[in-house]
Design a protein around this nucleic acid. Sequence first.
DNA 1: TATGAATGAGTCTTCATTCAT
DNA 2: GATGAATGAAGACTCATTCAT
Lengths: 200, 200, 200, 200
Amino acid sequence: MTSASTPSTPKGERRRNELIDAAAALLAEGGFEAVRHRAVSERAGLPLASTTYYFDSLDDLVSAAVERHSRNELAEWADWLDELAARQRGVDTLVELVLDILLGRPPQDGTPDMDAVLLRYERLVATGRRPYLRPLMTTLAAELEELLLRFFERSGMPVQPDRLKQLIALVDGAVVNALVEVNPDPRAAARRMLRAALQE
Amino acid sequence: MTSASTPSTPKGERRRNELIDAAAALLAEGGFEAVRHRAVSERAGLPLASTTYYFDSLDDLVSAAVERHSRNELAEWADWLDELAARQRGVDTLVELVLDILLGRPPQDGTPDMDAVLLRYERLVATGRRPYLRPLMTTLAAELEELLLRFFERSGMPVQPDRLKQLIALVDGAVVNALVEVNPDPRAAARRMLRAALQE
Amino acid sequence: MTSASTPSTPKGERRRNELIDAAAALLAEGGFEAVRHRAVSERAGLPLASTTYYFDSLDDLVSAAVERHSRNELAEWADWLDELAARQRGVDTLVELVLDILLGRPPQDGTPDMDAVLLRYERLVATGRRPYLRPLMTTLAAELEELLLRFFERSGMPVQPDRLKQLIALVDGAVVNALVEVNPDPRAAARRMLRAALQE
Amino acid sequence: MTSASTPSTPKGERRRNELIDAAAALLAEGGFEAVRHRAVSERAGLPLASTTYYFDSLDDLVSAAVERHSRNELAEWADWLDELAARQRGVDTLVELVLDILLGRPPQDGTPDMDAVLLRYERLVATGRRPYLRPLMTTLAAELEELLLRFFERSGMPVQPDRLKQLIALVDGAVVNALVEVNPDPRAAARRMLRAALQE
DNA sequence: TATGAATGAGTCTTCATTCAT
DNA sequence: GATGAATGAAGACTCATTCAT
């Protein structure tokens, strides 16, 4: 009904942003269930009512958080893409980079960063019951594919779109299946799949 | 805390069962969020308090529901496996059967049965945030793999375990990516992947 | 959904009753708008959640409050009816009694008791936007008519149902119009109308 | 407290007017509860804050809306009065016209227009709890009576003020009682009463 | 003179769990 | 062993009003 206040002032813009950041952080840490008006407002240090002031509904806030999170990932890679493609050599390095792009870069300390990986798949699956996420997720998926396409190309190992889809499916399938393991290491699982497929 | 009531009386056993059935049905229809004490008790036609009497917590009930649902699926196929393997001919038929096993048999009327498909992936991804589901899901995954291994074998097209994992990943990856489409048809996406992989 | 807990224990019965009483009091004092979960629970000195435990929805609670209030009025008169009919003499006394029944007995101190009168008409008009009150209000109206019919009869001044409806309309119309006066005295207005009609 | 902004500029006057129109429309459609700052501003296509800028409080806005609505009704009839009085013949036609004036003209399609009828009585009863409406409603009631008096006179069937009050009471009483019926047809109820009274 | 921004208080309702019986 | 009763905490969302600009 009341259309969300798209703030015109810099301050309003900033606050709206802080709410999205807070929501994105909660999303990453606790999944979709963790994104609640109260939790977001407390995390952002803003009044509860600000969450409904800046967003028409919780769904809107969730959408914004999903987009923020995904765009951050995408943007990060878009910047480095050419540089990386030029630098790397060999299938193994390529594989790691693809995994970095698809699953996020793991923390240096060797701990697998489950939260980040998980979110990618929660996003996909959650869309199944949240139709309002579909347009956003479709766009995002297309952008990611585009990015990877260019990446393979610059890396001197161009792939057809269908082949790329296949590689992505392989990674994603490996990950979701690895999620159930007692000591899940989805990246390792995806790595195995991807190497095998690329070295055929 | 009352420890989980493992009922000794036949009547208790029966009621516990009815609760699990109700929970499994809700799970299939509405995902994890739909499994609530009240909803389960009403569905089962049993008192609200019976849900906490027979299960220590909602998580326990959810676990039982996941197991029940998965075992039902598995059992269904175990029964028909040999019969099916003997009957079918050709890659296309094989592919459909594999999809039936992995994604559930679609309703006859052509409507893609999203709910059933969705649950398989919600289960996998939900395990990421529900460690208590891991042992169960690991066992279940192994049994499913075992089943498929035997199935390919009887179909005269034996596959190595690693190759099977790859095929499963392909299907699962195709599905989770198809979930975000505006008119999702995950089965069709999985079919394309699987056929391509099997016909190489 | 969850059907309202119809308490079986005496204590539960008592608490449910206290909630209805509290709601009826608020209704009388502040009209329909004043009946809120919080207000009712605070007035009754019971937890907020008890209001939703004993009543499926606020509408249910409002209905119960309306019924309680009306039944109290009705019951009061049913008890005294024959005695009063035997005692009174003359049209003027009859008129006052009819007004007592329709508008409630005014406080002794001469202050017109607006709240009580008002509620009768708020109830009627509110039903216009609250279909769920219709069955209840229809029954109540029929019972009131029945009561008045018997009352006129015992008073030695029997009236036809249609004539009674006319008299009631006269009173009600007089009252709702008197409500807007700067110093409203709806009872006086109704008295004038009724006397004129009865003395024709 | 900023005192009520009585705008001096023509533009201010116009906007204030648009707000009143919007509020009156909402009042007619949804009763008093429907008149909210947000709803009014959206309906008028004006900023939310304009509602508090041009009106000290919501009550002020409601008052203005009630007045606007009533004056519109009154004005409509004042224009046609003489013409109608000259044209009509017979008690039945007279009755319909009186009902038109008191209850609003029903839509042609035969559907009883509950909203319009309802508002007349909500206005009266609401005044019981809104003293600030009393002066306004008193004036309005007097004007309506005046109008009807003249109308009866021109129709060749002059009535005394007291007799008119009686007829109005009859209509109003019939209507408020008809409001509770399961299929309310207040106009029909009022018609019966009025005909009976006029044909005595 | 206007108005976008902002929010404290409040709306109804749901829910997992505890506890007395 | 079973369950009705009960509730604190939280859920999404609305709203009249204030205030800085």
